[in-house]
Each structure stands twice: as C-alpha cells, then as structure tokens.
Design a protein around this nucleic acid. Structure first.
Lengths: 179, 179
DNA sequence: TAGCGCATGTAACGCGTTACATGATTAC
DNA sequence: GTAATCATGTAACGCGTTACATGCGCTA
C-alpha cells in the first residue's frame, strides 16, 4: 500500500495540512494517486501514531486553525525503504474490459456510448498534461534528477491517455459506431 | 464494484465451480481483473444470498465434490443493468509513479532496477497476448459481435503493455541506465 | 441569504489481501 | 514419501468509498 507513502512524498518539500494535501491529491500527485479528504485525515492520524509525522497547530486570522504536518526521521526512513523495495504491479481492474465480454449478450449501444465518453475525457486530460509538459518540462534532459522523476510520471500519464484514445478509436470503428 | 459482475460474465457461457472460476481469473478474464480463490468463494456466498446465482453439488469419482454455479434470471438482469450503466474510471494507483517523485531524495539505482524488471515482465505478457491474438483473433472484422468484445479487451491489453515498454525505454534512457 | 472556500473530522460498510485450515488423489 | 492438483472454506485486518457532521468568513 502507498497512501501513507504518497503523503510523505508530498511532505518532502514542504509541510502541509490535511486540507492542503487533499487539494494536492486533486492535481499533480493526484493524477497518479487519488485520495479523498476523509481518507487523508484518517491516514494522517495513523501516521502520527506510528511516529512518521509530527504535527503543529497554526492559528490563522479570519480562518480556521490548521494543523501542519511534517515528516520525521522515522518517516523519511520508512519512505526510503519503500522506494527501494520492489512492489509488484497490480492488474488494472478496468470495468470496461469486463463489460466488453458481455457485448454479445445485451444492447451494445450504451457501451459504445461509454467508450465515446471515455475518449472525450481522455482527450481533455491529455490536453492538460501536454500543457504542463510544454510549460514546465519542455526539455527533460536538462532537468535536475528530482524533476526528471516527475517528468517521467507525467510522460507515463501522457502515453496512457494517448494509448487509450487510440484504443477507443479502434473500438468505435470495429463496433460500427462510425458507420 | 465488479467482482460479482466479472463472475457472472464468466458464467454466461457455462456453469462453473469456485475452483474453475479461480482458474479462469488466473488467465483470460484475469488479464483484466484479478481475484484470489478466497475472494471468489466469499463473493459466491453473497451472490447466492442475493439470488443472482443458483448452485448444484456434483459428485465426482476419485475427486472432491464440486459445487457448480449458474446464473439466475435475477443475476442476468443485474448484469445487464451493470453493463448498461456508466461507471467512472478510477485512477491507476501505480506505485512506480509515486516513487519517481522521490528519486532526487534517495538512491536511484533500485528504482531503475525496478523499471527494468517491469519492462521484462511487460515484454513477457505482451508476447503472450500477441500469441493469443494471432491464434484466435487474427481478423477481428470477421468475428461475431461477442468475440469482437473479447478481441477489444485483448487489444487494450496489447496496447497497454506496448505503451509501458516504450515508457520504460524512455525512463531508462533519461535516468542514464543505458550509458 | 445563499453558496463557496477554508478547515476538520466520525461512522459504516464493502472490497481485497494475507494467513490459516483441511483432505483426497495422482504422478514422480 | 513428497509434491502437485483438485476442491472448499474461515478469520483478521487494512484500504477505500459514501454518507454524515460542524462551523466560520467572504462574496454575489
């Protein structure tokens, strides 16, 4: 598992509150790992108990107090251990592929519609990724090592979306949606 | 969720035991949806209670008895409803991408090794998929509709592996593993 | 005054993994 | 004898989602 590790990764560069983390998991990091605020708050509680994080309440004028979390030495070691350990890839669990096995046994139209929708979503996401790439990662070879890592995650996202868009084309054509 | 739906999909064509299902989830269907035998047995229990399946104990000579499960009318309706309903795509949750964000903060070598391993695994899986494609799905346009669906799932698998292999190439090159 | 952004949580439930558990037959 | 295959399960725990819950300040 890795939500705790994703949180620690986010805390490497700056201390953040649960709320900040939730926002971060809605973008950037969240492109590759989603988490709701509920899950984040619960995980933070556990991580405090384990001693991976320390917390510090900050009073704010005109806003609710916030609790800033920071990575401890124990947390950093746990994170390093995890990065270095091999983790096995888990299978995708894509509903859509299972649904395809059913296409001969029920009305194919809604499924075709779902594929078309997916393609649109992917195109939107791809456009976003490409914009980020252009602005911040135009020349990957010249980046420092840590930003190379982030670039590679982004590149994987781009390839993923691109691949899925192409597959949707093939599917829609084969299923006669373009006829 | 969809394990129950994946099970019903497998039962569309033939009645199977928990053991048979577990084997099926190790190949074909399992390329896109993995499940352990423990999970399958528990799910079967729930599905019987819900009335989506019926069961029938079969005595066998020289082997343990087996319990064959069959899809009921209620089960088929539930399956149809699910296929037709839009389900939202969930994000990938790939550890590797999160690890990449850490690459500037710890020893990159093990991570590079993991990427190389992943690439090998993908190549093996791709070879398997291509063999299946060649043998059973060489001419997708001529297939009946239900086999077109299965072909498309396979095609997605092929594209996925291919994409990941290409990405690993890029990653290994950028991280200087080929130098 | 209605809604959004900031900020934090609890509770219940279901999915998924790991470990534990049994017992017969067949092939080496 | 020892391992693999066939065949079925239980128990405990952890991850993830959904629903529920509160309360302040700012803006339209």
């Amino acid at each position: 598992m890795a939500l705790s590790h994703a949180i620690m990764t986010a805390l490497l560069e700056e201390n953040l509150s649960g709320y900040d983390l939730a926002k971060k998991f809605d973008m950037s990091l969240g492109f590759f790992w989603q988490a709701s605020h509920q899950q984040i708050y619960q995980e933070l509680k556990k991580m405090l108990e384990r001693g991976w994080l320390s917390s510090d309440t900050v009073e704010q004028a005109g806003k609710p107090n916030k609790i800033l979390y920071a990575l401890t030495g124990d947390g950093k070691s746990a994170l390093d251990d995890w990065v270095v350990a091999q983790t096995k890839a888990r299978s995708a669990k894509e509903d859509l592929y299972v649904k395809l096995y059913n296409i001969g046994h029920c009305d194919p139209e809604p499924l075709i519609g779902e594929i078309a929708d997916r393609q649109l979503q992917c195109q939107r996401q791809l456009a976003l990724y490409l914009k980020i790439k252009e602005r911040h990662y135009a020349e990957p070879e010249t980046l420092p090592i840590n930003r190379k890592g982030i670039y590679l995650a982004l590149s994987a996202g781009i390839r993923q979306q691109q691949m899925h868009i192409d597959w949707c084309d093939e599917a829609l054509e084969l299923l006669g949606a373009l006829a």
